[in-house]
Every structure is written in C-alpha cells, then in structure tokens.
Deep mutational scan, measured.
Amino acid sequence: KITVTFNGEEKARRYYKKMQKHNLKVEIRVENNQWVVHVE
C-alpha cells in the first residue's frame, strides 16, 4: 500500500487517474490540508 501526499488538488487528481488506469484500488482524500492518494 502506497500513500502519496500532494500540496495541490490538480497534481493529486492527475496521479489518481494515472493509477486508476493500472486497475489499482485508489482512494483520494484531504488530510491536514494536504491531498493524499492511497494506492492498494
């Protein structure tokens, strides 16, 4: 499981979509004013 933190929504969403293309289970959320993407 990987957790990647971004300081911008745009970058986070781009990464999220990229990971989805690989058929990975991805989850995006905001934690402590940071955009966090969890990849299983």
Score class of each variant (00 low, 15 high):
1 K>V: 13
1 K>L: 10
1 K>M: 13
1 K>W: 15
1 K>R: 14
2 I>T: 09
2 I>R: 13
2 I>W: 15
2 I>D: 03
2 I>Y: 14
2 I>E: 05
2 I>N: 05
3 T>A: 06
3 T>D: 04
3 T>G: 03
4 V>H: 08
4 V>Y: 08
4 V>Q: 04
4 V>E: 03
5 T>C: 15
5 T>D: 03
5 T>V: 14
6 F>A: 01
6 F>K: 01
6 F>T: 01
6 F>L: 01
6 F>C: 09
6 F>G: 01
7 N>M: 09
7 N>T: 11
7 N>I: 08
7 N>F: 11
7 N>L: 10
7 N>Y: 10
7 N>R: 08
8 G>P: 03
8 G>D: 15
8 G>N: 15
8 G>I: 14
8 G>L: 13
8 G>V: 14
8 G>R: 12
9 E>M: 11
9 E>P: 07
9 E>R: 05
9 E>V: 06
9 E>K: 07
9 E>F: 13
9 E>Q: 06
9 E>H: 05
10 E>L: 10
10 E>V: 11
10 E>M: 10
10 E>R: 09
10 E>I: 08
10 E>H: 09
10 E>W: 09
10 E>N: 09
11 K>W: 10
11 K>C: 15
11 K>M: 14
11 K>I: 11
11 K>Y: 12
11 K>H: 14
11 K>L: 13
12 A>H: 06
12 A>M: 03
12 A>S: 03
12 A>L: 04
12 A>E: 02
12 A>R: 02
13 R>S: 02
13 R>M: 11
13 R>H: 06
13 R>A: 03
14 R>K: 13
14 R>S: 10
14 R>M: 09
14 R>T: 07
15 Y>C: 05
15 Y>T: 02
15 Y>D: 02
16 Y>S: 06
16 Y>K: 06
16 Y>N: 01
16 Y>M: 14
16 Y>F: 12
17 K>I: 13
17 K>N: 13
17 K>V: 10
17 K>D: 15
17 K>H: 12
18 K>S: 12
18 K>W: 15
18 K>Q: 14
18 K>M: 14
18 K>P: 01
18 K>L: 14
18 K>A: 14
18 K>F: 15
18 K>N: 10
18 K>R: 10
19 M>F: 03
19 M>D: 02
19 M>I: 05
19 M>R: 01
19 M>T: 02
19 M>E: 02
19 M>C: 11
20 Q>Y: 05
20 Q>E: 07
20 Q>P: 02
20 Q>L: 14
20 Q>A: 09
20 Q>S: 08
20 Q>T: 06
21 K>F: 11
21 K>W: 08
21 K>L: 10
21 K>V: 07
21 K>P: 02
21 K>H: 10
22 H>F: 08
22 H>D: 05
22 H>Q: 11
22 H>G: 08
23 N>P: 02
23 N>R: 08
23 N>L: 06
24 L>S: 05
24 L>K: 08
24 L>D: 03
24 L>Y: 12
24 L>G: 05
24 L>C: 14
24 L>E: 03
24 L>N: 06
24 L>M: 10
25 K>V: 09
25 K>A: 07
25 K>W: 07
25 K>T: 08
25 K>P: 04
25 K>I: 11
26 V>S: 03
26 V>G: 02
26 V>R: 00
26 V>D: 00
26 V>M: 03
26 V>L: 04
26 V>W: 01
26 V>P: 04
26 V>Y: 00
26 V>H: 00
27 E>H: 08
27 E>L: 06
27 E>R: 05
27 E>D: 07
27 E>N: 06
27 E>G: 03
27 E>M: 07
27 E>F: 06
27 E>P: 00
28 I>K: 00
28 I>F: 02
28 I>V: 03
28 I>Q: 00
28 I>N: 00
28 I>M: 08
29 R>F: 13
29 R>W: 13
29 R>E: 07
29 R>D: 06
29 R>Y: 14
29 R>V: 11
29 R>A: 13
29 R>G: 09
30 V>A: 08
30 V>M: 14
30 V>I: 13
30 V>T: 06
30 V>P: 04
30 V>Y: 15
30 V>S: 07
30 V>L: 14
31 E>C: 10
31 E>Q: 09
31 E>H: 08
31 E>D: 07
31 E>S: 08
31 E>R: 05
31 E>G: 04
31 E>A: 06
31 E>V: 13
32 N>Y: 04
32 N>G: 14
32 N>K: 07
33 N>W: 03
33 N>I: 04
33 N>A: 06
33 N>Q: 08
33 N>C: 11
33 N>R: 04
33 N>E: 09
33 N>S: 06
33 N>G: 15
33 N>K: 05
33 N>P: 01
33 N>H: 07
33 N>L: 05
34 Q>D: 03
34 Q>F: 11
34 Q>V: 11
34 Q>E: 07
35 W>A: 01
35 W>Q: 00
35 W>C: 03
35 W>M: 02
35 W>I: 02
35 W>P: 00
35 W>R: 00
36 V>W: 02
36 V>G: 01
36 V>S: 03
36 V>Y: 06
36 V>K: 03
37 V>Q: 00
37 V>T: 00
37 V>K: 00
37 V>R: 00
37 V>G: 00
37 V>A: 01
38 H>N: 10
38 H>G: 05
38 H>I: 15
38 H>A: 12
38 H>Q: 14
39 V>M: 05
39 V>I: 12
39 V>G: 01
39 V>E: 00
39 V>H: 03
39 V>T: 03
40 E>H: 09
40 E>K: 07
40 E>I: 13
40 E>T: 13
40 E>L: 13
